[in-house]
Every structure is written in structure tokens, then in C-alpha cells.
């Protein structure tokens, strides 16, 4: 999507191959073109049941391991957001953004199969900007719904919860 008249924000489309297992907000229907940053509604907690574990859809036969949402224990003022990036050759993938003051030592993503790295965070409602740090290199989320000029020659991914 172009932004000729509005250079500040841009829209992106997620590669379809990376969206197959994404769990979307329960109030919105699943769409192929939805961005890859997937807010998981707190209603997802209702699906956990007695087991206390919700397995999120994977990207093939070997899905990312189940995560214990009960351990995250989001409050009513936060939403669970799953961040995923496809970086098959990366050794160290991290996530930094406005919620952690852009700490370069921020959230380290877990490495799943097929070169996918992921993490799930509980974030408060509002506007968040972030980037991945792939082997020390800062980069925007290629599948984020919006991005914004960071003022330093890069673009921050924007997430609105």
C-alpha cells in the first residue's frame, strides 16, 4: 500500500505462508491478509479449560511448543500479543519497543521450527511501537499492520491495542 500523500504510516500485508496458524482476535473473522502481530483476546482464556495450556496454531507439522497462558496471567487491563518473525538464519532475535524503553536487551524470542522466532507479551491497551533486533540489526516487523518513521532513518512497527 502506497503512502504518497501520507508518508508517515504505511500498511503491510503478511505473507500468507506465515499466517496459517495465527490465532486472531475472537471478534474478528480470520483473514489471510491480516498482519502477523496477533492480539489474542482475553476471551482466549475461556478456551484454556482445566488444562491451563492453549496451543496456538503452528506453521506446519511441527508447531511451536504450547505455552502456558496461565503462567502469564494477564490482567484485565492487558492483552496477550504474540510476536512472530521468520528469520531462518538468525541466532539471536529480540524484541524492543516503547513498553520496555527500547532496551536492546529486551525480550528474546524463542526459536521454533522452520526458522520462526516467537514470543508472547501481555501489553496494556494503547499505542505501541516496536522493532525486532535480528542478530544485532534493528528491523521493523514486515507483517505489522502499520509503521511509522522513527526519525532516524528507520521505521517502527505500530501496534494499536
Amino acid at each position: 500500500m502506497t503512502d504518497d500523500g501520507n508518508p508517515g504510516l504505511r500498511m503491510h500485508s503478511a505473507p500468507a505462508s506465515l499466517l496459517d496458524g495465527a490465532l486472531h482476535r475472537s471478534q474478528f473473522p480470520l483473514r489471510r491478509k491480516t498482519g502477523f502481530v496477533v492480539p489474542i483476546a482475553l476471551l482466549a482464556g475461556a478456551l484454556i479449560g482445566a488444562a491451563g495450556v492453549l496451543t496456538l496454531g503452528g506453521l506446519g507439522a511441527d508447531s511451536p511448543p504450547p505455552i502456558a497462558l496461565a503462567a502469564i496471567a494477564p490482567t484485565t487491563s492487558t492483552q496477550l500479543v504474540r510476536f512472530v518473525i521468520h528469520a531462518p538464519n538468525a541466532q539471536d532475535v529480540r524484541l524492543a519497543g516503547t513498553w520496555n524503553s527500547w532496551s536492546a536487551q529486551g525480550e528474546r524470542l524463542s526459536a521454533g521450527p522452520d526458522g520462526v522466532h516467537y514470543t508472547t507479551l501481555a501489553l496494556p491497551p494503547g499505542r505501541h511501537e516496536y522493532q525486532f533486533i535480528v542478530d544485532g540489526a534493528w528491523q521493523a516487523d514486515p507483517a505489522a499492520p502499520m509503521s511509522d518513521d522513527d526519525g532516524f532513518g528507520q521505521r517502527n512497527s505500530v501496534l494499536i491495542l
Binding site: 500500500m1 503512502d3 500523500g5 508518508p7 508517515g8 504510516l9 499505542r127 511509522d148 494499536i160
Partner: peptide, 8 residues
């Protein structure tokens, strides 16, 4: 307003 206008 800023975000949506900048988004097109």
C-alpha cells in the same frame, strides 16, 4: 487522527 490520516 494522526495515525489514521498518516495511514492513508
Amino acid at each position: 487522527l494522526a495515525d489514521l490520516v498518516a495511514a492513508g
